[in-house]
């Protein structure tokens, strides 16, 4: 994105960060193709640079996969996108990380509102020890939605979008912890979708699931593509190849290669990428 485009994107939300400060602001979809952009973006844990000056542009409403060996910084980079790293003592970003042209580490950003726009699904399904209904309605209730009809609609729509509705529609009042692992993960996805985020971050969302439940999540990613910008961190390279439009390969904190998934898995540009995806190292 050039300077003019950045200014335009910034102006759209008014003063820098203003779009995250008002809950009544209309949802704005990215209209310039780039949803998330990093500019010499680093993340430090104390003095250790876990993500090293990464420059990348993540396209709107596509699926972007981040792959790389353990400790390469992929999850750290993912968690930086909705500032989950803020919760880690000693963790410090540098450089810029832009969401629709606005620096999410800017001084005026409301992190809660930011996370409303950028939802997250974690490796381990983590439903609240509440009913299935309350899990999905939790976010909308926090947003101030009280009308039962509206909540019913949101819960149904979110569960349908997470391909879980048919399995739970007759037992919405039951405790979510009684669901299977795969169902719990889809419930977490429904919970994330209920607050209508623009971006979904997924941190190894199927690593704890069996192949059938994994296939369901992968199918869902395919269905959600086009409506959400999805960024998925995965250890499973075949999964990255199956579900993503673009793939980023990270190694020791650096972005080694980033581009079209089909190209990266057939003819990568960098030998380091080739060696990793063909299992010759890492």
């Amino acid at each position: 994105m050039n300077a003019t485009e950045q200014n335009t994107a910034g102006a759209k939300g008014g003063v820098l960060g203003s779009r995250f400060q008002t809950s009544t602001a209309p949802k704005q979809n990215a209209d310039h193709g780039v949803h998330i952009e990093t500019d010499a973006f680093s993340v430090f844990y104390g003095s250790v640079e876990a993500v090293k000056k990464v420059d990348m542009q993540i396209a709107a409403k596509q699926v972007t996969a981040i792959i790389g060996p353990s400790g390469c910084g992929k999850s750290t980079l993912l968690r930086a996108i909705n500032r989950m790293n803020d919760l880690i003592a000693g963790c410090r970003p540098s450089g810029r990380l832009l969401f629709d042209g606005e620096d999410i580490y800017g001084p005026k950003i409301d992190v809660t509102l930011l996370r409303r726009q950028i939802g997250m699904v974690f490796q381990k399904p983590n439903p609240f020890p509440k009913s299935i209904f309350d899990n999905v309605a939790y976010g909308p209730k926090l947003q101030g939605i009280k009308r039962r009809n509206t909540l019913d609609e949101i819960v149904e729509r979110s569960l349908v979008n997470a391909a879980l509705w048919d399995e739970v529609k007759d037992r919405l009042g039951e405790n979510a912890l009684g669901l299977s692992g795969g169902q719990q993960q889809r419930l977490c996805l429904a919970r994330a979708l209920a607050i209508e985020p623009e971006i979904l971050l997924m941190d190894e969302p199927t690593s704890e699931l069996d192949p059938k439940a994994t296939a369901k999540i992968e199918d869902l990613i395919g269905e959600l593509r086009g409506n959400y910008t999805i960024i998925i961190v995965t250890h499973n390279m075949q999964q990255a190849a199956r579900v993503s439009d673009e793939t980023a390969f990270m190694y020791e904190g650096e972005l080694v290669e980033f581009g079209d998934t089909s190209k990266l898995f057939t003819k990568p540009e960098k030998k380091q990428t080739e060696d990793y995806i063909t299992g010759r190292f890492g």
Binding site: M237, Q238, A241, F265, T266, K267, P268, T273, E274, I277, T278
Partner: peptide, 9 residues
């Protein structure tokens, strides 16, 4: 083995 890159080619 679902090969990729040079192995696939």
């Amino acid at each position: 083995h679902q090969p990729v890159a040079i192995d696939l080619r």
